[in-house]
Nucleic acid binder design. Structure first.
Length: 270
DNA sequence: CCCAAGTCCTGGTAGC
DNA sequence: TGCTACCAGGACTTGG
């Protein structure tokens, strides 16, 4: 389920259970997800106390008082379950706190990952080394986006999905932001004018912030034993709405780019 | 059969 | 021809 807003709200949910808490039990239930789970993960985390949780792009970061940091990614279908009633085939990592709270990383497709690094070297973790700025952070603005897109012949949609350009966007929010900014997804990334990039930056920030707010409001559901942290799909302007009306009155179209659906409105996105 | 929110890797091509 | 950069597309997996 995860693009940046979903990971942000997931981390917030985990924080309420884990921050400042000692880990009584850490139990991988299989050897790998997308890649192997470190064999010493159980040993290094068991008995440690969680000192902080944070997020980088679509990755969640959990730091302990032993100087370790667990880094997880939810892939396409991953989620954390809190106090699940029962453990199923797709519950791949269990974490129990000393207070008796149980967390389970559940991921049917196993495109997610779990890794462990030294906290003081977290920024050297390979997925992070060439990653672009946080879209909600101070290093993302029209100037820097223009510099990152300069000379790029690829489409703006593909460019925004490239985590080296800006980190944390996925298919849904790229479609939404391009619609909000009135930019056609097929437009060459390097040929978008300055004024439109200003609108695009604002649209990206706006759509992510709204999704985080909506996600935060569903945390109660998320904390339910079988609850899910959903995308706020009722608020999507174009994603998953082929044939329906765009806010501008046009009709939402769908096309396939690189095997992925792109939802857009030809009337207002140029 | 179709479709699905993730990243990584490969192979083709353009340009120097 | 060889090297590099860039880019498009496929692979991975399970379930609805």
């Amino acid at each position: 389920m995860p693009e940046l807003p979903e990971v942000e709200t997931t981390v917030a949910g985990l924080r309420s259970v884990l921050e400042g808490r000692a880990l009584l039990r850490v139990e991988p239930r299989r050897a790998d997800l997308r890649f192997p789970i470190p064999v010493d993960l159980r040993q290094r985390l068991t008995g440690a106390t969680v000192t902080g949780l944070s997020r980088r792009a679509k990755y969640g970061l959990i730091e302990t008082d032993r100087g370790d940091m667990m880094i997880f990614h939810l892939g396409m279908s991953g989620r954390w379950r809190i106090d699940p009633a029962e453990i199923g085939a797709h519950d791949h990592l269990l974490i129990e706190t000393r207070e008796g709270r149980l967390l389970s990383l559940n991921d049917p497709r196993r495109f997610g990952s779990v890794d462990l690094v030294r906290a003081d070297a977290w920024s050297q973790y390979s997925p992070f080394t060439r990653m672009g700025p946080e879209p909600l952070g101070p290093d993302f603005d029209a100037d820097r986006l223009a510099a990152a897109l300069a000379g790029k012949a690829t489409s703006i949609k593909a460019a925004l999905l490239d985590q080296r350009i800006v980190a944390g966007l996925g298919n849904i929010y790229v479609c939404e932001a391009l619609n909000m900014a009135g930019i056609a997804p097929t437009r060459a990334a390097g040929k978008i004018g300055r004024a439109r990039l200003v609108l695009l930056v604002e649209a990206i920030r706006s759509v992510l912030t709204a999704a985080i707010t909506a996600g935060g409001s569903t945390l109660r559901d998320y904390a339910r034993p079988d609850g899910e942290l959903g995308y706020f799909s009722k608020q999507w302007r174009v994603y998953g709405r082929e044939g329906e009306s765009c806010p501008c009155g046009g009709v939402v179209r769908r096309r396939i780019d690189g095997g992925r659906s792109t939802f857009y409105c030809a009337k207002c996105q140029k």
